[in-house]
Structures are given as C-alpha cells and as structure tokens.
Amino acid sequence: MKFLRKMFTAMSLGALATVSLPAQNGAPRIIRIDNPKMTVFLPPTSAATGRAVVDLPGGGYSHLATGHEGFDWVPYFNGMGIAYAVVEYTLPAGNRELPYKDATDAIKTMREHASEWGIKTDDIGIMGSSAGGHLATTVATHADTTARPDFQILFYPVISMKDEITHGGSRKSLLGEKPSEADILEYSNELKVTADTPPAIILLSDDDKGVVPANSLRYYEALHQAGVPASMVIYPSGGHGWGYKPSFKYHDAMLNQLKEWLTGF
C-alpha cells in the first residue's frame, strides 16, 4: 500500500496545532508536526486498538534512516490497528539533550492528544533501531512518568557507551570526542534499568559487526535482573541495519514474532 506524505500547517510540539487528513480507501489519517518533525499515522477508527508506537530511526546519531527504519513500517502497524509515529529527531552533534527532548516531547504529545487521536494513554510504546535504539532506551530508563513509554521495541540497539562494546560513531556524535567517565556511565543504559523500566522485545542478528550483540545481551540481563518482562530474538545472520527490508532473510519470521509479542503483551 502506498501512503501519502504531505506537509500540513503545524507548530511546535509544545503548542500543537495540526490539520489531519481523513482516511481514504483504507489509508491512515496523517498528522504532521514540526519542531521536531513527527508524522503520526492513525489507522481507520473502526480498526483502531488504542495502542500506539513512537519510532526513532537509527543512523549513528549523525543521520536518520527514515525509510526502512521509519516510514516503511507504517502498513505493518496500522494493519494491526496501531497508531504509528515517526520522529525525525534533532541530531545531537555533541549536545545529547536535543534528541532526548524531541523523543520525550513526542511521547508527551501522543498522551496529550490521546483522546482526539483514539490512543490509550497507558499503551504507548517506543521503538528504536541502532542509535535510535539507544535513544529509545534512554527515554525508557531516564524519563519521568509523563514521558516514559509503556513498552519498548528495539532493533539491534546501541545500549552502552563503554569502550569495549559501544558503537564509536554513535558515542562521538552524542557525547563528543572525549566524553567524561560520568557521561559514559550516565548514557550506558544497561546501568540505568530499574523495576519501573517498561517491558521490551529486542531483535538482532548474531553476526552484527556494526553494533555488537553484547549491547543487547547486557540490556536484556539488566531487565531480567530488575524483574522487567523482556524477550530477545537473535537471528543467525543478517548483520546490521535490516529494519523492514524484505531482503532480510528472516523478514517474515521477524514480523510474525513481533506481532505475536505485541498480541500477547
């Protein structure tokens, strides 16, 4: 299905004014917001479950992979009656507060407009791929209750800022050339998990050389130790960055496993 993307009159997330495109021929209603750019795709009202997913594409905190890690997922989530938002967050260039604010503002905006958009305030998840996974887990482990998501979907995420396992490009873009030890520990999200961290599913490939699997393993272990429900699926091959790409060998299996997790959650 081909989805229309169109610019609408919009204002900042803090003072939102939007124009919504009504659904036509089964297509979603689309709401476009600027500063940061967030596009919300609402399923037809008759099919809506009230669940929502806020997506943060990857790109090493230096660019955004908004296709296969962003907009390509629209039919999948809307097809299950799930509202889906893609956040084109600000790249940090060493200022880690910028993407974090965009991501937390996005969650808050979904909750603030839950009634008019047909969303349940306690069923809003966050999804992130690679560096977007780091941003997603930063929100999940650092945000207060107003911006904390209700569940996490993580694809081959960067989790740690520690030398031995981090993705160097992501760390440099987020924390700068020579981050302090305090910053490294603050943004190593495996160290920030508590019993209040939301449930998660983590999906990755065993042969990922871009973001080594130890990131996901440490986060899963931290969730498990904190008593937070967590699932992890490790595919034997595929490398890094497959997202929604149909060329990924386990594409169909991955979609089915994610659907099963979402259905059973």
Rank of each mutant, 00 (worst) to 15 (best):
V54R: 06
T109H: 01
G133C: 09
L91P: 15
I126S: 00
G94D: 07
T90K: 03
M127R: 07
L64N: 10
H63Q: 15
W117C: 02
P57M: 05
A136W: 00
T104D: 07
A52E: 08
D105Q: 13
K108D: 08
V53E: 08
S62G: 14
Y100G: 09
D55A: 15
K120N: 14
G79P: 15
I126D: 08
R51Q: 14
T90G: 10
D122K: 07
G70R: 00
Y61N: 11
V86Q: 02
G67K: 13
F71A: 11
P75S: 00
P99Q: 00
E116Y: 07
A85W: 04
P75F: 02
G94S: 08
V53T: 04
N78S: 11
A52T: 01
R111K: 13
A103C: 09
S115N: 14
T137E: 07
T137M: 02
T137Q: 03
E88K: 07
T121R: 10
S129Y: 15
E116D: 15
G59T: 06
V54G: 05
F77G: 10
Y61M: 10
L91V: 07
V86S: 05
G70N: 08
W73F: 15
K120V: 01
H113A: 02
I107G: 05
E88L: 07
E116K: 02
P57N: 00
R51S: 12
G59W: 06
V53D: 06
I107E: 01
I126M: 10
A131L: 04
E116I: 10
G94K: 06
I119T: 06
L56A: 05
G81N: 06
G128N: 06
